[in-house]
């Protein structure tokens, strides 16, 4: 199986200061790869670098190979065609990503029309199909609804419908479920998982939540202060972490590991200091 995304020695510099050190990994079709780390680890920088959305003054080195093209050398206009179509994204904050004064059905059909994904007479039924697929029709949400009338989880479903509208090869989810409560979170994750298999779509998931990652990802990349310190299969990572930082993260997490209640959680003193490689 060929990789759908292949990153080779990608690094990011912010005004000559490295904030992401060279990192290499691949994402295969249908596979979910998680990127985790604490704030300042560089995980959001990585996501934005992949989407070509780094702010001015940031410089990338290395290669991002997607469908045979190197995204780092792609002109902005060509990148724009890829974004939202072959590479889709979903973010944490659904309210800022949706237009508050447009009906959700219209916003989904805008995406379809923009990328010319389906012939225009098929757009309306396609929108209905998408709403159905992300479970909004079942919840009684119509294409005529405005974003403010929806709950946080429903808005995320709209975003997901827009993201998968053009059947992308890669979905980047940046702390997608972080703002949701755990029950809605679980539902959303199951949905993404199904869609990934259905569309043979690679998923790169950025999350700080180890519970979510364990449930969702096949492989995990652990970042610490801009360095990739461990890349491992999910089961192995949780059962036998190789890097001391991963071990420290797992030992402190309340998800997956059981600490006796009402006792101090062992916090390694060196966890926030420096990088051990």
């Amino acid at each position: 199986m060929t990789a759908c995304l292949s990153v080779r020695d990608l690094s990011v510099l912010a005004s000559a200061k490295p904030i992401l050190h060279p990192i290499s990994f691949t994402v295969s079709p249908g596979e979910t790869v998680a990127v985790t780390g604490e704030s300042g680890s560089g995980k959001s920088t990585l996501a934005r670098a992949l989407m070509g959305l780094l702010p001015n003054g940031f410089k990338t080195c290395g290669q991002i190979i997607f469908e045979g093209k190197d995204l780092t050398t792609l002109p902005e206009s060509a990148f724009r065609d890829l974004r939202g179509c072959r590479i889709a994204m979903v973010f944490q904050e659904p309210m800022t990503a949706l237009n508050p004064i447009r009906r959700i059905g219209k916003q989904i059909s805008d995406t379809l029309r923009l990328h010319g994904a389906v012939p225009s007479r098929d757009i309306a039924p396609h929108v209905q199909q998408l709403l159905d697929r992300v479970g909004l029709r079942r919840a009684g949400v119509s294409a005529q609804a405005y974003p403010h009338a929806l709950s946080g989880g429903q808005r995320q479903r709209v975003l997901l419908a827009m993201a998968i509208a053009c059947k992308p090869a890669l979905l980047i989810a940046d702390e997608f479920t972080t703002a949701l409560d755990s029950r809605t979170q679980a539902e959303m994750m199951d949905l993404v998982k199904e869609l990934a298999v259905e569309h043979e779509m690679g998923v790169l998931m950025i999350s700080h939540d180890l519970g979510v990652i364990r449930r969702q990802a096949q492989r995990v990349l652990v970042l610490q202060q801009g360095y990739l310190v461990e890349s491992n299969e999910t089961e192995q990572l949780f059962d036998a972490p190789r890097h001391p930082y991963t071990r420290a993260l797992l030992s402190m997490s309340l998800h997956g590991t059981s600490h006796p209640p009402l006792t101090r959680i062992p916090v390694p003193t060196d966890v926030s200091k420096g990088v051990q490689r």
């Binding site: 420290a248 402190m252 101090r264 916090v267």
Partner: peptide
């Protein structure tokens, strides 16, 4: 909060 910060704050609350 981050995992490590969460642990530190929970410990603090217990203390």
């Amino acid at each position: 909060l981050d995992v490590s910060t969460q642990a530190v704050v929970l410990n603090l609350l217990l203390d």
